[in-house]
């Protein structure tokens, strides 16, 4: 069984995306043998008030039988904008299982008190907080996109940028998605990261050579993610599927394909 913990439906304003609806995503999943996907409303990243994207996702989920069994909705929440607590309550009532935050796009920092409060509420509600290191490779970004550009003074974010949040709410469950610019954190944060309830998805560039990464972190820390429809649907799978038996046994592979995702998602019961 395969579960994709990092997928979207919706639009990206700077480029036409293919398969950017639930129908399109289901087609990709069918083609590559993926059973379920965690999905969020991509459009919400560019909305100040993100709730319409969550509502769009909810309506899309109800549009076809089987979608609510196959797709696991996460809400895009902007804790720096009024009304987010009410939005979150509505999303919880509608069966959303986690929250995706985008401080880079919504103009706040992860140690903003509202963001910390959001992670605490998620922890209390049994929701997962999903942190996305980057959305697109800044080297090909649109001139209208955020000014975080690799190699410049305003560089792309790294895992380090999110550590203040994990430090503030260390016992919350986190997905860490599309990891670029390295897995390194400050030495003082390393024990925390290893101990924390975090799951890295396999879509990101920084997952360079999985056999080596599995010597640094156990298989319990990784799960298949595609970052679809922005990144291709196969690379995240390949990082798991191409592991040799002496690098990851069948148990570990199954954890990465779906077991870890199920463990996190079942925390809400």
């Amino acid at each position: 069984m395969w579960i994709d913990i990092n997928a979207y439906t919706g639009s990206w304003p700077y480029k036409q995306l293919r398969n950017s609806t639930l129908s399109g995503l289901a087609g990709r999943m069918d083609r590559f043998g993926i059973d379920k996907a965690v999905v969020a409303g991509l459009s919400g990243i560019h909305y100040k008030n993100t709730q319409p994207a969550n509502e769009e996702l909810y309506q899309e989920l109800k549009s076809q039988s089987g979608y609510q069994e196959r797709f696991i909705p996460f809400a895009v929440i902007n804790p720096a904008y009024p009304g987010w607590k009410q939005d979150l309550k509505k999303c919880i009532a509608n069966g959303f299982r986690g929250v995706r935050i985008y401080p880079q796009y919504h103009d706040y920092l992860p140690d903003d008190p509202a963001c910390i409060e959001l992670a605490r509420i998620c922890r209390e509600e049994g929701l997962i907080t999903a942190l996305t290191i980057r959305m697109v490779d800044s080297r090909q970004r649109s001139w209208l996109d955020i000014p975080h550009v690799a190699g410049t003074a305003v560089g792309e974010w790294t895992l380090r940028n999110f550590m203040p949040l994990i430090r503030a709410v260390p016992d919350a469950p986190y997905f860490i998605l599309n990891i670029a610019n390295g897995l390194a954190v400050d030495q003082a944060d390393l024990p925390l990261l290893k101990k924390a309830n975090v799951l890295f998805d396999t879509s990101g560039r920084s997952l360079g050579f999985m056999p080596d990464l599995l010597k640094q972190y156990p298989a319990e820390k990784f799960a298949f993610g595609s970052h679809s429809p922005i990144l291709d649907y196969v690379t995240g799978m390949l990082r798991i599927a191409s592991l040799r038996p002496d690098e990851a046994g069948e148990r570990d592979k199954e954890l990465m394909r779906s077991g870890n995702a199920l463990r996190f998602l079942k925390q809400r019961g």
């Binding site: 069984m1 069918d30 083609r31 043998g33 191409s242």
Partner: peptide, 18 residues
């Protein structure tokens, strides 16, 4: 081949990537 455009979609779980 594996479910190219216009072909029948693969059944879930049957795709062998490697």
């Amino acid at each position: 081949s594996s479910g190219l455009a216009g072909r029948e979609p693969e059944q879930k779980g049957s795709f062998d990537l490697m």
